[in-house]
Design a protein around this nucleic acid. Structure first.
Lengths: 171, 171
DNA sequence: TGATATTAATCAGGTCACCTGATTAACTAC
DNA sequence: GTAGTTAATCAGGTGACCTGATTAATATCA
């Protein structure tokens, strides 16, 4: 068990990081209407990035793999259709299902968003980047354990989506 | 400028961390109705924690220091009043202003929430905790610079709130 | 085969964190 | 004392979610 004070400093720094980053996100969010960093993990962005990794799947599959309700998924998909970023068409083999595909501009946005590397990493040295990566690997493992203990099917979904989502990032 | 691949790994790990943590948060959020980790940075929780550091201030001061609109602030405060966590009373010296105070149970919740250290730090060694703290210090500095460049009054507010918020964490 | 599930999607309606715009009541300044 | 400010409120809106009820299409089994 690590030193409590060190733990406290680290926890404080992480909270501070979250707060400050949140502030920066909102700044971008308010000043322009592009460039949101939480984009990838929520709502419409989540859908777009999932399609970027796996295009032309059904709305149901989207919902399942993103652990969203069917209704929320429908809502986000419809918003994206209205924005011209995805298309929705009925499957011919099973008329209940809708197949969702990225349009060209949807793909462009997804590409841009999912390849963004935050600038703040520029202030770190190679050694620090390695340390950071190692530390987060350990923390993430712990978090996966937590998920697995409380809900193993959610655990599997999370692993799957992370695997797909990040396959270009860790090589 | 650090190595691009290392930067990419670090960025990927951070994204993964955010996703997984988000998943864990939602898990807690759905299974019980306590114990949300984002609590401290959003909505009603933000208000509570701000009051914990600085009780009995006006609604306007709350809004300013948290960089929230007056309307949002009013909304959160009213919700907290309904839950019995804060009180709102008209100032006697200036009848326009409302003074907001924590109730006993509001203070209890704020205390509990703002002293929480995430369990996942237990998997790190003392050395790793130091590394993590150092790295985040550098990153945070960079983020502050970004804020400062684009909006220096927001920068000041952010620094102030961080200072108050975290005065017990970094000693 | 036809009645009975089950499934994919939708509609209606709700919560929470925000926001902008318009309005009111109280205070300040000239 | 009339003309600004200011603190707060009301009304209404968005985005990310959710639950419950309903519909239409497919699957299943007697």
């Amino acid at each position: 068990m690590p030193n409590l004070l060190k733990k406290k400093s680290a926890a404080g720094k992480l909270m501070e990081f979250n707060m400050v980053r949140h502030t920066v996100d909102n700044m971008y969010h308010r000043n322009s209407d592009q460039g949101e960093r939480r984009f990838l993990f929520q709502g419409q962005g989540k859908i777009l990035v999932a399609l970027y990794q796996n295009d032309g799947i059904s709305q149901k599959e989207l919902a399942t793999s993103l652990d969203l309700s069917a209704q929320s998924t429908a809502e986000f998909v419809n918003k994206l259709v209205n924005k011209g970023l995805v298309t929705k068409e009925k499957s011919t083999t099973d008329k209940r299902v809708s197949i969702i595909k990225l349009t060209k501009s949807g793909r462009e946005i997804a590409t841009k968003e999912s390849e963004k590397i935050p600038e703040f990493f520029d202030v770190l040295t190679d050694e620090e980047l390695d340390q950071f990566t190692n530390i987060l690997t350990k923390i993430n493992t712990k978090l996966y354990d937590e998920i697995n203990e409380s809900n193993s099917s959610l655990f599997k979904k999370t692993q799957k989506i992370v695997k797909e989502h990040f396959r270009d990032w860790f090589l």
